[in-house]
Design a protein around this nucleic acid. Structure first.
Lengths: 373, 373
DNA sequence: TTGAAAGCGCTAACAC
DNA sequence: GTGTTAGCGCTTTCAA
């Protein structure tokens, strides 16, 4: 060969080379490198000699070989949806809080809400023999998940569950209480015409929020009005990389209609709530919160910046729970399913619903200008 | 053993088991599974039989064994600093745009600006025999980087360079032009008293911005005033997980002093600029941009939300460049260094510097209230 | 105290 | 067309 393809001009130092140079056996070196010298009766002298030469030669254990031999990789896959909103940051922290002390390592990737990409990532993960996989599920990949479970590799859903896979494990926020707290807050704030902005993908978490929104209104003696439930078609969660939200049509539809207008909007999450702010303020010229209050759910870092009220999602805890389940599943042999519904209903009240500022005004119907970057 | 420690009750199907069941050799199966059947003269019939059984048995190649044998993992490490601001999102996209088509896989992790954690991640990466490592450097780990380079594993710095490692590779935004464009924008906007908010860690990118800020003022015939260069002590970039910025002391110092006050602030990045907004508006009660204009650099997704003007950083391109360099280095045998300075000086002009709104007012010295969440 | 050796699953040169 | 075989670097049992 003219061109040497070897990309790895790094240390060829292995336990074998160390052993040879020292005139001891590979087993000895292996024991020393794994801190098992004592329990295998390796003399202090030998131990030191091995250690020194290893350092001198810059020996670094080969985890590929180790994992292959031991049939365990001590790592679990973590597929996140995107890295845009700071959710991933907090989730990862939670995951690490349980992996770190147990010497497990997450093998991270991102599916960008692309089913095809997620399939590739999953495939790659089983090829690498990860001991479990945590993923933010997409319904499009139901069959893939099924196949995966079939193979016996533990699969844990993060952030949402898969209704069609009742036997699978998941860790997610139980936003019921939070939803109710949001509605109650708006009511206490003097609002009676409370709309909900969601999406028409009826995933479990979505359904949960809508159900509880309705129930809370009813419990407060307020009639539920279907025309105030805005359901954005298609894939409203997604945000274009330009920073623009592909969102708003269902809100515009309501505000352009003849229906009585709401004086508060509860959004399914903060990203959507921020779009509400954009649409309501910039496009329609409404004043928030004087004319319309807006509230989100989840409490993203940037919500504070724009003064958006929100319910705090215990993301770290959700991540930690998922990690715990992954470990439990990876280390046990029985096929069990764990369902972690993490509670949390703290509210962050900010400008967008500030009680003191509500003046009971009814939104005017004057569309001001269209959205701009 | 009473307790079976084997975590991996997944398919024991290997090329060997397939080969046995079919009465062919492992080589045959291997060739088929790698799409090398043709070139190794495996008959169509055999190929089909192998493929079918493999599918039936749910065979998944073991990448550990493959990598071990081939002495290449086809993956490179990618250590990001944090996932809070959406920077990682864009950088990852850039990286993937070059890895995907070449069948390389990033092995991602996050150091959270913790040197100790980065060291662990780096260690783990060389144990896994990644072919190169891309990282957002921290000066505290200078020695670690040196050792790493010593071992021959290609190291590529992302987002910044390491001055003490001139022979190392990096990919970063060349923000010189952008800095100048920002200053010029503010000047055109009628501002003459333009302050700079930075940090006193004089990393290359920081120095670059300060230098260019000064030069731009001078070129415009405006005197540089050292008291208008606010340098935040310690680690100002960091944001506490609560969402609060640990930032602002240098700004407060200026605004509490007797110095003439600026009518514009150019911040080293958007996170800092947002803190400026907080401090100036909420703490001191200034009106932005009427009294003071605020401009950031980098253009984070949330900058649009708060109406912050900024210079757009070509993050995807930086990520892509880093990935290209990593591949080049991993596949070549000579120790070379590549320095990618990605150009980009587009400005996003938003409310915080909107030209029309400048009224030439001088900031009053009335501290209103202290910061709140 | 230490060493020998089997084998994890796979690739690829070589033999038939 | 297909099979044999020698490892890749490591762990771990068993023997000495």
């Amino acid at each position: 060969m003219a061109t040497n393809q070897k990309p790895n001009r790094r240390s060829n130092v292995t336990i074998t080379s160390i052993a040879q140079e020292l005139g001891v056996s590979v087993a000895t070196v292996s024991y020393v490198m794994n801190g098992k010298a004592k329990q295998n009766g390796i003399s202090e002298r030998t131990t030191v000699r091995v250690r020194e030469l290893a350092k001198k030669r810059g020996y670094v254990p080969n985890d590929l070989a180790r994992s292959l031999r031991r049939q365990r990789t001590q790592s679990v896959g973590l597929i996140l949806s995107d890295l845009e909103q700071g959710w991933a940051h907090r989730a990862l922290k939670g995951v690490l809080s349980v992996f770190d002390p147990r010497d497990y390592v997450p093998y991270m990737s991102v599916h960008f809400w692309d089913p095809e990409r997620e399939r590739r990532e999953l495939q790659s993960m089983v090829k690498r023999r990860l001991e479990a996989i945590i993923t933010v599920p997409m319904r499009e990949n139901l069959e893939t998940y099924r196949d995966l479970i079939e193979t016996g590799i533990p699969l844990i859903f993060l952030q949402d569950e898969m209704e069609d896979l009742p036997e699978s494990s998941f860790a997610m926020w139980n936003a019921r209480e939070a939803t109710r707290a949001c509605v109650d807050h708006l009511i206490k704030n003097g609002r009676r015409r409370i709309a909900f902005v969601g999406a028409d993908h009826f995933t479990p978490w979505m359904k949960m929020r809508i159900e509880e929104y309705k129930a809370s209104l009813q419990d407060a003696g307020i009639e539920v009005r279907e025309e105030w439930i805005c359901l954005e078609p298609r894939q409203p969660l997604r945000i274009k990389s330009t920073g623009e939200y592909e969102f708003g049509s269902s809100i515009r539809k309501l505000f352009d209609s003849d229906a009585e207008l709401p004086d508060a909007m509860l959004a399914m999450n903060d990203a959507v709530a921020m779009t509400c702010l954009d649409v309501l303020q910039d496009e329609y010229g409404y004043r928030v919160p004087e004319e319309i209050a807006v509230m989100g759910m989840g409490d993203l870092p940037q919500s504070r910046l724009v003064g958006l009220s929100s319910a705090v999602e215990p993301v770290e805890e959700v991540g930690a729970k998922a990690a715990e389940i992954a470990l439990k599943l990876a280390l046990s042999n029985f096929e069990e399913a764990f369902h972690a519904l993490v509670e949390g209903n703290n509210l962050k009240i900010r400008r967008s619903t500030e009680p003191s500022e509500y003046v009971g005004a009814t939104p005017r119907r004057t569309r001001r200008r269209s959205s701009q970057i």
